[in-house]
């Protein structure tokens, strides 16, 4: 019973895809040039959705409204005209300067590794983590908060996982960064490097059951076998085949195209080019912790 219920929407979706494919084939054969152009545009959309993930609205259908999304985007673009919000990923090291009325000098600069990035639109946030004086510090920043004076990317890189919340349970040296760190520049046109470091976690107790999270960036967890057995029991490996779930969790590509073409026209208009400093210099690691 459950199986049929779960499969029916999938079939509907597949049919939908098929219809789309048929439509695309039924259209007159496009010339090589237009196809190339289309491919380029498609590629740029894929690029943009990685650089500007917060421009995609919440895919929850009950929260969506086209006019609200349009107004929200225009506000985001207006804010971006006043502050350079750079391309960064979970695992990049950032420095954020914030206006704070209670700090002497009225500015507060914090350097840390981005361990989480979430939310969409004006409410998108990211968390920076660092260990200062043997004390782990995490600060949640709002990306479009006007009290943020500047966001600098000191080291642009990705990690093996989408969230690095396990750094809370890792040894402190993995989340210790020099507050006076200099910007590392990558060569022009280079892809974003992936740091495949494997983190060593402290023994339990932890803030979460990390053995259930399919983490790639951690060393062997050294747990008794029963933990892995339980993790296997509660695992849902079929979810990645649930097309309907995937469809409901994402924004269709046609809509993305509309959103990012709007953004692109703005980027062209304001003369913002992708000036990403991508030249990596070798920096001798210093032992801090």
């Amino acid at each position: 019973m459950l199986k049929t219920g779960a499969h029916r929407p999938c079939f509907a979706l597949i049919r939908h895809f098929k219809a789309l494919r048929r439509l695309s084939t039924a259209a007159p054969e496009p010339s090589e040039q237009t196809r190339q152009k289309y491919e380029a545009a498609r590629k740029s959309v894929t690029d943009l959705r990685r650089i500007y993930p917060e421009f995609l609205p919440d895919p929850k259908i009950e929260f969506r409204n086209p006019i609200r999304e349009k107004l929200e985007r225009s506000d985001m673009i207006a804010r971006r005209a006043n502050i350079e919000i750079p391309e960064f990923y979970v695992g990049s090291i950032l420095a954020v300067t914030l206006s704070d009325p209670h700090t002497p000098g009225k500015f507060n600069r914090f350097v840390g590794i981005c361990i989480k990035r979430e939310g969409c639109g004006l409410r998108s946030t990211f968390i920076l983590r660092n260990v200062i004086d043997h004390q782990g510090i995490e600060i949640l920043y709002e990306l479009y908060d006007p009290t943020i004076k500047s966001i600098e990317v000191l080291r642009l890189e990705k990690r093996l996982d989408g969230e690095l919340l396990y750094l809370r349970d890792a040894l402190p040296e993995y989340s210790t960064f020099d507050p006076n760190m200099e910007v590392e520049i990558l060569p022009e046109g280079a892809p974003v490097p992936v740091n495949d470091i494997k983190v060593k976690l402290k023994p339990r107790p932890w803030v979460d059951r990390w053995e259930r999270k399919h983490l790639k960036g951690v060393q062997d967890l050294e747990l008794p076998q029963r933990f892995y057995d339980k993790a296997k029991e509660v695992d849902t490996p079929w979810e990645k085949y649930d097309l309907m779930k995937q469809y409901m969790r994402t924004i269709p590509e046609e809509e993305q195209h509309e959103i990012f073409s709007e953004l692109q026209t703005h980027l062209h208009k304001s003369g913002v080019t992708q000036k990403v400093k991508r030249k990596r210099t070798f920096v001798k690691p210093t032992k801090l912790a």
Partner: peptide
Amino acid sequence: LHEFGEPSIVFKE
């Protein structure tokens, strides 16, 4: 209200 098109908020000493 702070307008999104305005420059970032800076507190004066």
